[in-house]
């Protein structure tokens, strides 16, 4: 038997990986932070990579199926992830490939038909998360039960208005704050500001999205620019995950905010309007609150801070967020924004 070598790709070998992926109808994600291949002699016969806590872009040459190459590759990538301290791993794949990954210890979280399946390597991972959400919810929530998901980077008067409108229309409102720490305002602070800015609404229950909604695993193009088709596919899958959460919490309506300057938010809303109603969750798009004819968004707050326009920033946020912006932590974020490039959500 020929000696097979599994190793990280070397500079210049990406083109070979691209060719292998293209033959399988896949493309290399632009944000892989590690890529590996199995080489037979000098030929690449299987390839895949990592991005954050996900495994991505896995492909085995058509003529080399059934030799267990996928399991060797996945084992190698899991080992790389463990060395980085990532034990809870995610991947998504085509519906037709899901059973193979099930054999490798990846369990289904949600699917968008046969198009895409989202998997994790923890058997109880998602069910544990659903249980946590239920534990955080007071018993006998009043109907109708609604939900809002926000990154709140940072929490503005626009977010507050959206939550107030949604809260008034619901018996109970679940408010999910994105946990992924890829935004300029730290996740912990974003959550604290959401809680402070919604404390006057007794029917609002705050949750963290964990790795399951708008995370780097489900929806990387929310954080990193990518083409529309990729963003839409990921948004549909994110919607499928949300549908399962909605089912567990009895949510029947999801409120969405418009984000006129963000293309990816528009795609996201479009995908949710397709995916959620068939799953029994109505979508309600609420218009943005405006300040002097301009919609209030977190992007505009970040731009104001970048420009050093504190007066404008303060008019766009509730007092709790304003106090934070003036705190030591807030000043640090403002300093980072001043040196940042693009601060408007793509």
């Amino acid at each position: 038997m020929d000696e097979l070598e599994i190793r990280g790709l070397r500079p210049g070998e990406e083109a070979e990986m691209d060719a292998l992926l293209a033959r399988e109808g896949l493309r290399r994600d632009p944000w892989l932070d590690y890529a590996a291949g199995i080489f037979d002699g000098g030929t690449l016969v299987a390839a895949g990579g990592c991005a954050g806590s996900t495994l991505r872009c896995l492909a085995v040459d058509r003529s080399r199926r059934g030799e267990g190459l996928l399991s060797s590759l996945v084992r190698h990538l899991i080992e790389v992830q463990c060395r980085r301290g990532n034990f809870h791993l995610f991947l998504y794949t085509k519906g037709s490939a899901a059973p193979q990954f099930r054999d490798l210890g990846f369990h289904e979280i949600a699917r968008d038909g046969q198009r895409a399946v989202f998997l994790e390597n923890r058997r109880q991972g998602f069910s544990d998360y659903l249980r946590t959400l239920q534990t955080e919810t007071p018993p006998d929530p009043a109907a109708p039960v609604g939900a809002v998901v926000m990154n709140a980077n940072p929490f503005t008067l626009g977010h507050q208005y959206l939550v107030e409108q949604a809260s008034a229309a619901c018996g109970t409102l679940h408010l999910f704050v994105v946990s992924e720490d890829l935004s300029v305002f730290p996740a912990e602070d974003r959550l604290a500001l959401v809680k402070a800015g919604t404390a006057h609404l007794p029917n609002v229950v705050c949750h963290q999205t964990g790795s399951y909604l708008i995370s780097r695993a489900t929806f990387p193009s929310y954080f990193l620019a990518d083409d529309d088709a990729a963003a839409l596919a990921q948004a549909r899958l994110d919607g499928a995950v949300f549908a399962r959460i909605a089912q567990a919490l009895g949510v029947t309506v999801r409120f969405l905010g418009t984000e006129p300057t963000s293309r990816v938010t528009a795609l996201y809303n479009q995908a949710l309007e397709e995916v959620l109603p068939p799953a029994g969750v109505a979508c309600r798009i609420l218009p943005r609150r405006e300040l002097e004819g301009t919609p209030i968004s977190a992007s505009s707050v970040r731009q104001a801070l970048k420009d050093g326009d504190w007066a404008l920033a303060e008019r766009l946020v509730p007092p709790s967020t304003a106090a934070y912006l003036h705190s030591e932590k807030g000043q640090l974020v403002a300093a980072r924004l001043r040196t940042a490039g693009q601060v408007i959500h793509h």
Partner: peptide
């Protein structure tokens, strides 16, 4: 966290993590 083993036939891949309370085994 730590792991051992492979996904090959006749083998078992074991991942172990700290747990606050007791032993929890999830087997596939």
């Amino acid at each position: 966290g730590a792991m051992a083993g492979t996904l090959e036939s006749s083998d078992i891949m074991v991942t172990i993590l700290p747990n606050p309370d007791g032993i929890q085994i999830d087997l596939t």
